[in-house]
Amino acid sequence: MKSHINVRNVVVALVALGLLLLPLYSAVTGNIFILTLFTRIVIFALAAASLNLIMGYGGMMSFGHAAYLGIGGYAVGILAYEGIGSGFIQWPVALAASALYALVIGALSLRTRGVYFIMITLAFAQMAYYIASGLSRYGGDDGLTIYKRSTFGGLIDLSNRVQFYYLCLFCLFGGVYLIWRIINSRFGMVVRGVRSNEQRMQAIGFHANRYRLVCFVISGTICGLAGALLANNTDFISPAGMYWTRSGELMVMVVFGGMGSLFGPVLGTIVFLLLEEVLSQFTEYWALIMGPLLLLIVLFARGGIMGVLGRFSRG
């Protein structure tokens, strides 16, 4: 057996610990901003982890993942607007709507491969974007303010910063754990096998697309949860949040961290959003640095952060 103590795992453990203790730090130092920032980071990390499930393990390069953030968010926002404030209704609806959307567009998109798949997922997400812009009752282009966060019958108070943060963190850790179980299960082995060599998997008796589709739906559903969290975090939902550049950012987070590594997307999201935050404090023009950095990472550090850490682990 290989030793489990290596640079990579130590970093992951430290980051997880850091995330757990963050509210403590925030309370001691009185730094509320960092808690808000990290709530956002944790939510996006969940979205990135879900994208990694299909990109990294399933080989499906979806360029439309922001759609689920929007669908999950709109489910919460619309229900709240219509007077249904209970999270016990809002959240299952958010998950079900995301799953249904994933099922439909997945069934259609998976007929194509390669760059056509990238494009068709993008096109469907844009469609979702325009549908949202057309919802005049719910603010159209301008979006919809959510006046009251989801309620859970007094079990947990989402307006409480610390409670909300821990709920998000629970969802993230739960999501990553779920993904870990999935990728090592029978189902996960099949999905990864299909990514590795589809023809071979078909030849030994697997209906590749059926497994791909289920994986696609699971991923979309998890991302829909992130969408419900995000809507509660920003108290607002608008089509802009599902624009294609948002899907691009999610891809970047995954690749930053290391595609196909379990915790990579979490690290990638932390680094991406922190970098954005830090750079934008120095200069208004942070993308002047972020853009070329992305190019360099693609050119020279394909495994992302996890790949680099992995090199340390071996060396």
Partner: peptide, 12 residues
Amino acid sequence: HLDQVLATFGLI
């Protein structure tokens, strides 16, 4: 194609 998409996304 993924690499190309990401790198040129950076350029945008």
